[in-house]
Simulated assay, not measured.
Amino acid sequence: MIAAPHIYVDADACPVKDEATRVAERHGLILTFVSNGGLRPSRDPMIRSVVVSKGADAADDWIVENATQNDIAITADVLLAARLVANGVHVLGPTGRPFTPESIGIAVAMRDLKQHLRETGEIRGFNPGFSQKDRSAFLSALDQTVRRAVKATAP
């Protein structure tokens, strides 16, 4: 039997830590928060906290090195999502937006375009606020993704 999927959270500035915890607990999955610091440890043995060095991509690199095919990752970082999707990891943004092999190319292109437009002063660097609708969409998407990943590990 294939091991149950793990959930990895790019935890720096992640607005859905509590929601990810609830879904992981409901499905009995290990949840690992990865951050450069500031994580509150949990007494729950199914919830792990990993604090990496302060390097620019240290948390990203740790997640890529540890997440395997059919695991689940939560991140708003499009470049991290691209690395994970290439490894067969299910990836969701904090609004529930899935990053898939079919969508990751355009997501990276849009990220690069927006970065260029910010650098040239064409647009401002503001992200829309995180709403209750986003939180609800994330919960639904994560639950569906977990069900898909668990089903894929069944004998």
Rank of each mutant, 00 (worst) to 15 (best):
S35W: 03
F130T: 08
E102G: 02
K54S: 14
N87I: 09
R124M: 13
V52S: 09
T75A: 06
N70W: 07
V91W: 07
T100M: 05
A107S: 08
V89D: 07
L92I: 04
L139N: 12
G28P: 05
A107V: 05
G93H: 04
R148Q: 14
R111Y: 04
E122G: 06
E122W: 03
F33R: 04
F99S: 14
G28Y: 08
D134H: 14
E102V: 06
G93E: 15
V89R: 07
F33S: 04
V89Y: 06
L31W: 12
G93K: 15
V146D: 02
I123C: 06
R43C: 12
P94T: 09
T100F: 01
T75E: 11
K133N: 08
M46H: 13
L79T: 10
S136N: 01
G28W: 05
M110P: 06
A81R: 01
S42Q: 12
P101W: 00
F33T: 03
L84W: 06
D77I: 01
L84R: 10
I123V: 15
T32P: 08
S140N: 04
Q115T: 11
Q144F: 04
A56E: 10
K54V: 10
L84M: 12
P101N: 02
P94K: 00
N66I: 00
E122F: 07
M46P: 00
P98C: 02
P128S: 13
L80H: 07
I47V: 15
D134P: 00
D60H: 05
T75N: 08
E119Y: 01
D61P: 01
G125Q: 01
D77S: 04
R83I: 09
H116I: 00
R48L: 13
S53P: 00
R48S: 03
I106P: 00
H116M: 05
P41C: 12
F99L: 09
D44G: 04
G105K: 12
D112R: 15
A67G: 01
R97W: 02
A107R: 11
I104V: 14
L39F: 11
N87E: 14
V52D: 07
A73N: 05
R135G: 04
D71H: 03
T120P: 03
A59L: 03
R48G: 01
N87D: 15
V89N: 01
S53A: 11
H27C: 03
R43K: 14
P94H: 11
G55W: 02
V108Q: 04
F138S: 05
P94A: 06
M46L: 15
R40V: 14
R148N: 02
S42A: 09
L79A: 15
V108H: 12
G37S: 04
F138G: 03
A141T: 00
V85Y: 01
D57K: 08
D61Q: 11
R124W: 05
T120V: 12
R97L: 07
V146G: 03
V85A: 07
V91L: 08
R48Y: 05
M110T: 11
H90W: 15
D57Q: 13
R111V: 10
D44I: 07
S35Q: 02
V34T: 13
A141M: 12
G121R: 10
H27N: 10
G38R: 09
T95Y: 00
T95Q: 12
A109E: 15
I74W: 11
A107N: 15
P94S: 11
I106R: 14
P45S: 15
L92Y: 10
T100Q: 02
L113F: 09
N66D: 00
